[in-house]
Amino acid sequence: MSPLSPVAAIGRSTLHLLAMIGRVTRYLGETLSHIVRPPLYWREFLAQLMFIGYLSLPVVGLTLVFTGGALALQIYAGGARFNAEAVVPQIVAIGMVRELGPVLTGLMVAGRVSAAIAAEIGTMKVTEQIDALTTLSTNPMKYLTVPRVLAATLAVPALAAVGNVIGVMGGYLVAVTRLGFNPTTYIKNTVDFLEASDIVSSLVKAAAFGFIVALMGCYHGMQSGRGAQGVGRATTNAVVSASVLILAANFVLTGVFFTE
């Protein structure tokens, strides 16, 4: 082993990373250019809207109802240390709507949807269905990527909106049944405390996360290697990269929305 090989290894992985960033960026540009140019395949778009939005509702709802409940318990216990138990509704609302609602929705959808997209497109690539699409005069970017990316960008905010409500409900149920809060006051406090900007930021974040989920699913699916192993790796890469990008984007967007 040459003394320089660690340096070579660092160089190699740096080049690798840069090349990948380049490929993703180019894919992003290509996707955007196809989104703005007709035609849009409506049937595929609606099917994806159904799959990404409606069918993700149970998993998102369950995730957020439990999170909301746990959040209420924690804030109550933490608040008790300095006699601030009464802030439970406000903090649950703000924590849920600004952060946990969109982020957890994004992450659950990343697990469910980007994996499914990558596996489907990866299998299509491996079995030459992508080539077949091209020979049938249908652009795979338009037929596969655009409907998924558009559907996810629209469906995930809707999911997050419902998820926010369910999460706040989770906190409400725990606070009212276990912590002795008055139901009417709890809801009034929640509604009074939330501002329009909280909700707008929540939905904008969710839209960005939806875009990331579908883009990563499609990108890794299209890049899939051969065989079952190639598809498996594409699926893993899609979920991991979508999750990490969601958390990174969340940090950036929170900075944009909430730093004075």
Partner: peptide, 18 residues
């Protein structure tokens, strides 16, 4: 490109049916 591809038909090895 559409006009070009419209002149071709292809049978893929595994069928490549959707």
């Amino acid at each position: 490109r559409d006009a070009f591809l419209a002149r071709f038909g292809m049978l893929f090895q595994g069928g490549a049916l959707f």
